[in-house]
Design a protein around this nucleic acid. Structure first.
Lengths: 233, 233
DNA sequence: ACCTGAACACCGTTCAAGT
DNA sequence: ACCTGAACACCGTTCAAGT
């Protein structure tokens, strides 16, 4: 009869909101630990159950399915972001701090990168960040829908820069891999693409970690400058 | 002894480069069809084997593992992007066309959104696009590493805007879901966040598809304006 | 050179049954 | 109200064996 409703953990009452013992909180905490240690593939309902010395399927009493669990841990990550008050530090400084903090939190919890854009961000922490971000852009002088476009643009940039960075870290970092050989192999790949080869050679001369920092800053001020031009005069 | 090397399909010689019959090409084509029909979760080695009327495990002769197969289909998607010649149409027009085309291709093949940032883009099609993109920014006047920062910024924006758009489409589109109820539920969620509520109400007045188009355009010109300011004078 | 089937070690989820 | 174990329907991947 009634159509299937938009589903998300945040739309369902948790069972026993403040019960002692095993609870959503405990489960989420254990899940985050497991994720930090073993990554997204390392989290299975069975392993998590074991970690809580519970039957593999006990968790299904607290959570409808694995996706709901992921929504919960995803929101944890939003809770770690620093949200300065734009009225105190100015809108541009507030945005800069938030942006760097978002990047850092994702780098600290690489599994969250794969969750972005796969899960809706409707948890209280995510909403709080979104709300404050909107306050920052209103403080800057944006009106009406432009405020939302500006938010979307900035978050797109932050996530779009950071997600590939995480992927790169996990690819190049994990196995002991011979830098010489890798360099030879990549050099060979780029050989046929003249423009790219120059870029590759340039990037080789620097520490990759600082290159990515610099790239992030370069992009961030560019985006903010571009947005600022859209302010009503 | 020698460390594990950076692994990617593109670094291994394909078996029988141009053999008739079952081949990488056939496999990739079938895989893309399966993905378009059933999405990323719908692609399994067994199903793909069946579709090719082959044993489930025959594919392992052409491809080392599923990730390699995904790298191959991912590069297919890069092959669909329109790459205008900046010398003909001007750098800014070229970038605009490419950006819109990248967005559209991802919307057309939603499964590709989840692959971005999970897989390295080292296929010939991806490299070609990257190479041409670099040509566009050099044409604009960028020098040295700034060229790469500009590329990174623009692609971050494009992917960062489009990935969540795909997620939203698949969440809100698939089930028959009551718009009234959804509106009520979201309204309730946003009630506690004053800034966000305004944004939500504004967005409700428009067709969501055109809202996202407009947001993309707004962000795109902002990003390009911001980058342009970084050009040497 | 290519393909197969059986087997291994996993998954998420359901559900009747226990306390 | 909470937890369990067995069971179902899947996975990706390995490998000895076939032609």
């Amino acid at each position: 009869m009634s159509g299937k409703t938009f589903s998300s953990v945040w739309l369902r009452e948790p069972r026993k909101p403040a019960s002692p013992g095993r609870s959503r909180q405990e489960i989420v905490k254990a899940a985050v630990e497991l994720l930090d240690e073993e990554g997204l593939d390392g989290l299975s309902m069975r392993k998590l159950g074991a970690k809580l010395s519970a039957g593999a399927t006990s968790l299904y009493w607290y959570v409808a399915n694995k996706d709901e669990l992921l929504e919960l841990v995803y929101d944890e990550v939003w809770g770690k972001m620093r949200v300065p008050d734009p009225a105190e530090v100015g809108w541009r400084e507030a945005v800069l701090v938030l942006a760097h903090s978002m990047r850092q939190v994702i780098l600290d919890h690489p599994w969250s990168a794969e969750l972005i854009g796969r899960l809706p961000a409707l948890g209280p922490n995510a909403l709080h960040v979104a709300n404050e971000m909107r306050a920052m852009f209103k403080q800057a002088g944006f009106k009406g829908p432009d405020t939302d476009y500006a938010i979307a643009t900035l978050t797109a940039f932050i996530f779009g820069m950071t997600i590939p960075e995480v992927a790169w870290n996990s690819k190049s970092g994990t196995p002991e891999l011979d830098p010489e050989e890798m360099h030879a192999v990549l050099g060979q790949i780029f050989a046929r693409y003249p423009h790219m080869r120059e870029g590759y050679e340039l990037s080789q001369r620097e520490n990759p970690r600082v290159v990515r920092e610099v790239a992030f800053d370069f992009g961030l001020v560019s985006v903010l400058d571009g947005l600022e031009r859209r302010l009503p005069t």
